[in-house]
Design a protein around this nucleic acid. Structure first.
Lengths: 207, 207
DNA sequence: AATAGTTTTAATCAATTGGTTAAAACTATT
DNA sequence: AATAGTTTTAACCAATTGATTAAAACTATT
């Protein structure tokens, strides 16, 4: 039967995802995965042919989760101000649910940039999005400052993802508990919204 | 002799730093290091007792480089606006000289948070800095918006470090050459300065 | 219950890992 | 040049790594 094999295959993938996200590709052994999945270590090679192939499968999924929602948001047809706030809210919610996703993806790409080839599909679409157009129209109308979409994009993701990426350092240097870290993040995305929107919308057109 | 041994010890350290920063602790083998340093692999254990100890030595150095300058800047006695701009300039210069330093440190801490214990000394001082006082005074004087130092700090380092951390993704999704990436960063720190300063200084005190 | 097909396992493989050893090469002092 | 101390090396070790194998356990069809 083909379908009945699903549960174990999925169990392996879920366990592997956990371990890979925590330890990275290099720090993970196939025995770690087998142990986490509660299976014999040979079974991993039965379903996925190698550690590399299993990782690739998981990495593709994780990147999808990481990029898809964001891209949809960018290309959705809502007014600029709401879009920026919705983007920040969405991105923040995603990071709260998957706090390690950012450092995991970015580090694996840093270690092995060729992995990018797999995600050219989903990410490429960021380029040809409607966001720059939306900005250009607002700029032409004089309702916002003249600024490139890439920088707005960077300001958003940097301010949301970086707190999670640097969490261990922050908690040590600022003596933060987990709940204090949470409220710091809450406050920071609020401030990020304000900061970006005030920079964009509240300017002196010709002064 | 004790002093004559320095050159090789340093050569090992320099080579190890390169390899560790590129491949991470888990991705690096002692033979990689020996090869990069042009030495017999046993010599590494002669000078440093183990891979872990060699790494610790390097990690301490790198963290010093990463934090020291920033802390000094924060505690220097210059006016607020200049301080923020100087901080950004300094941080940016440091990242341009050591583009991988951020992802390296943050990932190693993510993988093994205990390594933080070694850098409690240098970083702790960030807490008891004069920056918050400086902000409080400006807030009391009504010259800036009411905002916590932690958030200004986060806005600065997030906007400077994140472009370097996410460089591979950016270059792919936005089809950027190395020089285009550079000018993007130039532009982004300029924008970051403007954005933070305008948020801080240009506000309606009671509107 | 006998069969054929699938899934799971224990045992094992060669390669690589971090680390040790004992001898060699080098350096300086006598 | 003989000595003692340091630095470097080749050879090696046990443990771990990713992966394979052949047999066992399971499942369904006849």
């Amino acid at each position: 039967m083909l379908c009945s094999s699903k549960p174990t295959e999925d169990r392996i993938k879920e366990a592997a995802k956990e371990v890979f996200m925590e330890k990275g590709f290099d720090g993970t052994t196939t025995r770690d995965i087998a142990k986490a999945a509660g299976i014999n270590s040979a079974l991993m090679n039965y379903y996925f042919r190698s550690k590399e192939k299993l990782f690739h499968s998981i990495f593709t999924d994780v990147c999808g989760l990481f990029f898809e929602g964001m891209i949809q948001m960018f290309n959705s047809e809502i007014p600029l101000r709401e879009k920026i706030e919705a983007l920040i809210d969405h991105e923040y919610a995603m990071m709260r649910e998957n706090p390690r996703i950012s450092i995991f993806i970015l580090n694996e790409l840093h270690r092995n940039p060729e992995r990018l080839s797999g995600l050219i599909g989903p990410t490429k679409r960021i380029i040809e999005d409607s966001f720059q157009k939306q900005l250009d129209e607002a700029i032409a109308a004089g309702s916002i400052r003249n600024v490139n979409a890439h920088h707005i994009f960077m300001m958003i993701i940097a301010n949301i993802q970086f707190p999670f990426i640097s969490k261990p350092v922050l908690q040590l240097t600022w003596n933060m508990s987990d709940s204090e870290f949470e409220s710091f993040c809450d406050q920071h995305i609020k401030l990020t919204k304000e900061s970006i929107c005030s920079y964009l919308f509240e300017f002196q057109p010709a002064c």
